[in-house]
């Protein structure tokens, strides 16, 4: 199994590494793979693990990336508009990143205070965006990671591999990533990426439904007689 073999494969499956390596990069990835997986077997109380420092290279595969700087509703609307531009809502107030055929592009935001109408729809991805990554070790344990500096690969394919370097802080189940303490290796898991937009839509919809039912339950609880 070569380096490309590792990055294109689900690392929770058995991988046989070769005895010799062809480059320093390959050697470091193999080492990260071979190192003991992070906090294996302590998954239940991972949330109580405060401010641990990573002491070895760790290999992970990315299961999901979510922009937590934007609301789920906004991301859901953007995806819906991308999937079905003809029926997108046309009164939108939030910035949009929709890239659709020109005829369906909408002016969805008008700044009432701004005289300069050419500056509509600020579609530039905000550099300060924070992404929450769900990552998985070879042992199958799932952790989160959050970036504190912009990560150039934040729109990567699911199944991509990363190595997290020693010195990285792990707090309450979450690695705190900077560009300097993580190496992006690329890779893909085809099945995970199939119909990704639809899956994300379903995810956002389910989350919003969940919020809604929580609110409804709370409201109901408040209304219940205090007997």
């Amino acid at each position: 199994m070569s380096l490309s073999g590792i990055i294109s494969q689900d690392i929770t499956q058995q991988i046989d590494l070769p005895t010799t390596t062809t480059s320093a990069r390959e050697a470091s990835v193999f080492k990260a793979y071979q190192n003991d997986p992070w906090l294996h077997g302590t998954a239940q109380n991972v949330i109580d693990q405060k401010m641990l420092e990573v002491d070895r290279d760790l290999l992970f595969q990315i299961l999901m990336i979510e922009n937590v700087s934007k609301s789920k509703q906004t991301q859901y609307d953007d995806l819906k508009a991308k999937i079905d531009p003809k029926n997108q809502k046309v009164d939108r107030l939030k910035d949009s990143n929709v890239k659709g055929p020109k005829r369906y592009q909408m002016v969805t935001q008008v700044n009432m205070e701004d005289d300069n109408l050419s500056q509509r729809n600020n579609n530039v991805l905000n550099d300060k965006s924070v992404f929450k990554l769900a990552i998985q070790s070879k042992a199958g344990d799932i952790f989160f990671a959050v970036n504190t500096t912009p990560l150039p690969w934040s729109s990567c394919m699911l199944g991509s591999k990363i190595t997290i370097k020693p010195g990285t802080i792990f707090n309450r189940g979450m690695f705190i990533l900077k560009e300097s303490n993580v190496t992006f290796l690329g890779g893909i898991n085809r099945t995970w990426n199939e119909n990704k937009d639809y899956k994300m839509c379903d995810y956002f919809e389910a989350k919003l439904d969940q919020y809604k039912s929580t609110i409804n339950n709370n409201t109901r609880k408040r209304r219940a007689p205090a007997t």
Binding site: V68, S69, K70, V130, K132, I169, R172, G173
Partner: peptide
């Protein structure tokens, strides 16, 4: 905060505790 607000409690908590520490 320069990041405005985030729609994930755990992310903010992790960053907050990190700075506090």
């Amino acid at each position: 905060w320069d990041r405005g607000h985030l729609f994930d409690r755990l992310s903010v908590l992790a960053l907050y505790e990190n700075s506090l520490e």
